[in-house]
């Protein structure tokens, strides 16, 4: 049996209390919510925090509020997100495809956004990593994916982040000295180690999705119908005028870099256009050109790059109104309703 290392455990009852503990303990402390990402990492000794600060007992993090959009507390489990009627389609589809039903009952939206980056040289037991003399991300000096790289290229593997970026969402980060709100894409840095712009004393407390009347979708590439992390995530949110002209467009990619990101060029390109086959093809090429996967996840690297174009097409055609149910069933291996 793989065992957790020893740790001290704190269970604050409020965000303020949690922020205070976090500030007091310094970088030796880590936040735990659902634990589905952190605990496997601790068992594999990727992280051995001296103190775990649990967010589970903080009622504020479970709140859902409606206003000019929707605000999710970061502590809502992924299953709870799925049970909220107003959850936008892209977020719903992304959430429904995370891991497994059990893990969705445990993992939180905030946890998925803060998911550690992944790499086949990193997500291994301590003994395995010892056999390769470790890697840049943890305990080693070399990035085995790109040995000349000074930067860790571990992959951002969150499904919800690209969906939320497409939906133009923001996150609230709360520290002992106050809170700030930043767009979701600003939460991330293209660095496999320092992949979040969250400061160590900050807690991701809420996710705000503005009311934009977006039609949105999320397509995920993975080998199997469950369990697997994305090896490509395409999220698109479009707002159409009455004449089927795109007024606003946001396209985001996940799992092809150390961060999820907005594909600005394609987003700009789509504005003011109708989704003709030609427009879709042009946009897909722009989107696919930004997918630069590395050889550190499941499936063949070159193939993953090649199909980015197709997955972008699935997303755009679905938003155009094409019947993509059969295709989605084949790819996702399950029905995903908006």
């Amino acid at each position: 049996m793989m065992r957790l290392p020893w740790f001290d455990y704190r269970a604050p009852r409020s965000i303020a209390e949690a922020a205070k503990i976090l500030a007091g303990e310094g970088p030796q402390a880590m936040l735990i919510a659902g634990g589905t990402d952190l605990l496997p990492n601790m068992k594999r000794r990727h992280q051995t925090p001296k103190v775990l600060v649990s967010l589970k007992g903080i009622p504020e993090l479970k709140k859902v509020s409606n206003g000019s959009g929707i605000v999710f507390g970061s502590g809502l489990t992924l299953s709870e997100i799925l049970n909220i009627e107003k959850t936008p389609t892209a977020l719903r589809q992304a959430t429904a495809q995370i891991a497994t039903a059990h893990l969705r009952n445990m993992g939180t939206l905030g946890g998925n956004l803060c998911l550690d980056t992944r790499c086949t040289y990193y997500n291994q037991n301590y003994e395995w990593r010892k056999a390769i003399d470790f890697c840049l991300k943890k305990d080693g000096a070399t990035c085995w994916v790109a040995t000349a790289s000074k930067r860790c290229v571990a992959v951002s593997s969150t499904d919800t982040a690209p969906a939320l970026i497409a939906l133009n969402a923001s996150v609230v980060l709360t520290g002992s000295s106050g809170e700030r709100e930043i767009p979701v894409d600003a939460l991330y840095r293209n660095d496999g180690i320092e992949y979040l712009s969250r400061r160590p004393d900050e807690i991701l407390t809420a996710i705000k999705i503005p009311q934009k009347n977006f039609k949105s979708t999320y397509w995920k590439l993975r080998r199997r119908g469950s369990f697997d992390f994305p090896i490509l995530g395409v999220a698109v949110a479009l707002r159409f005028s009455s004449g089927n002209i795109i007024q606003d467009a946001r396209v985001a990619l996940g799992a092809v870099a150390s961060r999820p990101f907005l594909v600005e060029k394609a987003s700009e390109y789509l504005k003011g256009k109708a989704l003709s086959d030609d427009v879709i093809a042009e946009a897909c090429a722009m989107i696919a050109s930004r997918a630069k996967p590395m050889d550190n996840t499941d499936m063949d690297l070159y193939w993953r790059k090649e199909v980015a174009d197709d997955f972008a097409g699935y997303a755009l055609r679905e938003l155009r109104g094409d019947d993509m149910r059969a295709m989605r069933m084949r790819i996702a291996r399950q029905e995903l309703t908006g």
């Binding site: 455990y9 269970a11 735990i32 634990g35 589905t36 605990l39 496997p40 775990l52 649990s54 589970k56 299953s79 039903a101 059990h102 893990l103 009952n105 445990m106």
Partner: peptide, 13 residues
């Protein structure tokens, strides 16, 4: 009442 994985659940919670 909810199915969860006991291997990733802290006993102290």
């Amino acid at each position: 009442g909810e199915p969860k994985l006991s291997c990733l659940t802290l006993a102290l919670e």
